[in-house]
Computed example of a mutant assay.
Amino acid sequence: MTEIETTRLILRRFRVQDAAPMAAYRNLPHIARYQAWPSPLTPEAAIDQARTYSEQDPEHPGWFQYAIELKADRSLAGDLGVNLHDNRLQADLGYTLAPALHGQGYATEAVRAVLSHLFVRGLHRVSAECNASNLPSSRLLERVGFDLEGRRPEFTLNLNTGEWTDTLLYGLLASRWPNLADDPQATAEATGRGNR
């Protein structure tokens, strides 16, 4: 399992102990409204979810969910998912951060580190989708270099509110990443440190 380290974060495999803090931020209505999971996430369901995440393999096609841990106090800050396509040359990206940490650059730091890791591995393209009303998320994607490629009107049904929402489609090609990664704020160590 490859761990990704940045100046302030460690992106690592989930542990069962992450269940309670994960449920705490995922159950907040202003977080859940932008996500596809049903809410509230019960303590039992959170444990099952954390266990499922802990068993995923980042080297195989499918989803792998990184736990985003703050180095300062070793607390769970959020999570970041990578869906590796069967061709192993493309991936989808999604992320959630605890609201107390919004606006401090943590999500940007985590996304940049994972992008560096994926492009070093030889991926050709990374895609992301975003609820059109989630402006902070769309700004983050554009800030790290994603191009807005389209908009799907009333494409996603929110399981918690019953509301149909527009979805923004973003993409980033590996050929663009070297220039973007030269940004001083993008200097994250995206090399693996081995297992923990």
Rank of each mutant, 00 (worst) to 15 (best):
M1A: 10
T6Q: 12
L9N: 05
L9D: 06
L11S: 08
L11A: 06
L11K: 04
L11P: 01
L11D: 06
L11V: 07
R13L: 11
F14R: 03
Q17E: 15
Q17N: 06
Q17W: 00
D18Q: 02
D18A: 10
A19W: 03
A20F: 00
P21N: 04
M22V: 02
A23D: 04
A23S: 09
A24S: 00
L28K: 14
L28W: 05
H30D: 15
H30T: 09
I31K: 02
I31E: 01
I31C: 09
A32R: 05
R33Y: 06
W37E: 11
W37H: 15
W37K: 01
P38D: 10
S39W: 02
P40H: 10
P43M: 11
A45T: 01
A46L: 12
D48K: 14
A50D: 05
A50K: 05
R51L: 14
T52S: 15
S54E: 07
E59N: 12
H60L: 15
H60V: 09
W63I: 08
W63G: 07
F64P: 11
Q65P: 00
Q65A: 14
Y66G: 12
Y66E: 07
Y66C: 12
A67D: 12
A67T: 08
L70T: 05
S75I: 04
S75Y: 00
A77P: 04
G78V: 07
D79A: 10
L80A: 11
N83L: 14
H85S: 14
D86R: 15
D86N: 08
R88Y: 01
L89F: 12
L89M: 11
D92G: 15
G94R: 03
Y95M: 12
T96F: 00
T96Q: 09
A98P: 01
A100G: 07
L101P: 11
G103F: 08
G103I: 09
G105P: 04
Y106N: 04
Y106V: 04
E109N: 05
A110I: 00
R112K: 13
A113T: 01
V114G: 04
V114M: 05
H117C: 11
L118R: 10
F119T: 07
R121C: 06
H124R: 14
H124I: 01
R125W: 08
R125F: 10
S127G: 14
A128I: 03
C130Q: 01
N131H: 14
A132N: 06
S137G: 03
R139P: 01
L141F: 05
E142K: 13
E142Y: 00
V144H: 00
D147F: 02
E149R: 12
G150W: 08
R151T: 06
R152N: 05
T156R: 14
L157P: 00
L157T: 04
L157S: 05
N158M: 03
N158A: 12
N158V: 11
N158E: 08
T161K: 10
E163P: 00
E163L: 14
W164Q: 15
D166A: 13
D166H: 13
L168K: 06
Y170A: 06
Y170W: 06
G171Q: 12
L172G: 09
L172P: 11
L172K: 10
L173E: 13
W177T: 06
P178F: 08
N179Q: 15
D182S: 15
Q185P: 00
Q185R: 13
Q185F: 07
A186L: 05
G192P: 03
G194T: 09
N195S: 13
N195C: 07
